[in-house]
């Protein structure tokens, strides 16, 4: 129990960000029209590609001879980039189609 309280105390600023972000996330998309559901899902999908930053940190601090870390980190960077680039490009194509329909 002590270790959990310590963790919360040491990370209190992050926990504030976490709680406030939950409300921001809900508030920001609460009025989305149903036609935009799929593009919004796709856009959000690209945004969680921010996990690539973790991959870059892992990769950037892997020791030279540590092959498992190097290989897994390299793979993580590729997959994260796929998520980011693919996500934004697919969203853009969906929204482009939207414009033509109108």
């Amino acid at each position: 129990m002590d270790s959990i309280i310590t963790f919360i105390g040491e990370n209190i600023q992050l926990i504030y960000i976490l709680i406030l972000s939950i409300f921001v996330g809900i508030e920001v998309i609460s009025k989305v029209p149903s036609a935009l559901h799929t593009p919004l899902m796709s856009g959000a999908n690209a945004i969680h590609g921010v996990v690539i930053i973790g991959a870059i940190i892992v990769m950037g601090h892997a020791e030279a001879g540590n092959w498992p870390a190097l290989i897994l980190g390299f793979l993580a960077v590729i997959l994260g980039t796929l998520n980011v680039v693919g996500g934004f490009v697919v969203t853009d194509r969906m929204l482009e189609m939207f414009k033509k329909k109108k």
Partner: peptide
């Protein structure tokens, strides 16, 4: 977002949680 906690990384945390909460509502 858990990655954000692990690395004390604010942008991972906000980006992740935003999608987490907005995605759940969506």
């Amino acid at each position: 977002a858990f990655g954000g906690f692990l690395y004390d990384n604010q942008v991972m945390l906000t980006g992740g949680i935003l999608v987490g909460s907005a995605g759940t509502l969506l």
